[in-house]
Design a protein around this nucleic acid. Structure first.
Lengths: 198, 198
DNA sequence: CTATAATTTCAGTAACCACTGAAAAAGGAA
DNA sequence: TTCCTTTTTCAGTGGTTACTGAAATTATAG
């Protein structure tokens, strides 16, 4: 009994990679790994970032199995991470005619991707902070504290600090807003303007 | 034997907080907690962010014990986190005349703080990515692949994707650079440019 | 110098998050 | 319907990071 008979199904004969294919793959892997590392330090888990990098850099629709194989991860992990990326909206499901399995593709426009991510993070992480700062401010106003208390040195200091932070967050928010607002339509213009100005 | 005799050293009679003090503290705590949460999602550990928020929002020099007590953390944790924040350069040690213990203060200028952080993160996290992308690009040039290989569809696709990402990272880098050199005026300028363009 | 206060270090532990793999569910094809 | 393929779910596990607490070290006062 041969190995082929014992394992009749799997282990399709993998076509050997040409030199060019190998180099392509190496370059892609390099990018994928770096992207994963970067993701980690920005609060995005490594695997998700890597999957995204893989879909983005190959530019081709890839199946769950492609992802599993390329990144050496389990089916469960692949499934959950792919779904999360779909929910973010930076990759999309794609059905192939007459094929049962699903494929995934990354958005091709980096700017669009970034603006989607920016919008979400602004909403979830920056807006609440700004809201909290305003709330703190209100708590320390004369109206809620009384005149004499509001003039206490420590109260004044804290209010001052809160004001500084609020100003900063407002400006940052505006920049994000600019990117987000112009997501599809005018991002290339934003880019051009920025490139010209700096 | 009274409790005071059994525990002669610690438990100095904590002066009761006035209403104003309580409100001040509540407002500060609110800010501190939010800041900690935000830090986490941006890849900064909660405690460090909280310590910084505490120092920033009170505006007063605080000792290690003050930090421990206010945030309910151990001495070891406080010590290590404070040191890390000092290394970042966003808080500073301060000696008080005739006092043995050390105090810590936060930088007061939010713009300066963020530009310090931005500089470091750019250097450690963005520059390497840009470098990697360039490297990948080079690996897929005609020179290293040969003419026919370089024209393969999949190679072309990947090169295109890398180019898109490189453009994005370049612009982002420039914005950061703008911010790093001259924190407030730099960013304000970015905002102005963006607002004028739309 | 000694005594004591303050700080740092670090081994051990706790909490957290990512990941696996197998079982269940869902989705066609016959 | 049943059979087979693909996807999803999730309990359990492994790995990582954050934190504690006590011992070691350093700094200051007397």
């Amino acid at each position: 009994m041969t190995t082929a008979e014992l394992l009749p199904i799997s282990i399709a004969p993998v076509p050997p990679l040409s030199a060019a294919e190998q180099k392509l793959r190496t370059a892609q892997d390099l990018f994928i790994r770096r992207w994963g590392e970067m993701g980690q330090t920005w609060g995005i888990n490594r695997t998700m970032a890597e999957i995204h990098a893989f879909l983005y850099v190959t530019g081709k629709p890839q199946s769950t199995d492609d992802v599993m194989e390329r990144l050496n991860i389990s089916r469960g992990n692949a499934s959950m991470s792919l779904r999360a990326l779909c929910n973010w909206g930076i990759i999309e499901r794609q059905h192939k005619r007459g094929e049962r399995r699903e494929y995934f593709v990354s958005l091709s426009d980096v700017w669009e991707m970034f603006s989607i991510i920016a919008a979400e993070r602004k909403r979830r992480e920056m807006d609440p902070v700004l809201e909290t700062i305003k709330q703190c401010h209100r708590m320390l106003e004369e109206g809620s504290l009384g005149k004499s208390a509001a003039r206490r040195e420590d109260v004044a200091l804290t209010r001052q600090r809160l004001a500084g932070m609020e100003e900063f967050m407002s400006v940052t928010n505006k920049i994000f807003q600019q990117f987000i607002g112009n997501a599809k339509s005018g991002l290339t213009r934003v880019v051009k303007v920025l490139l010209k100005a700096f």
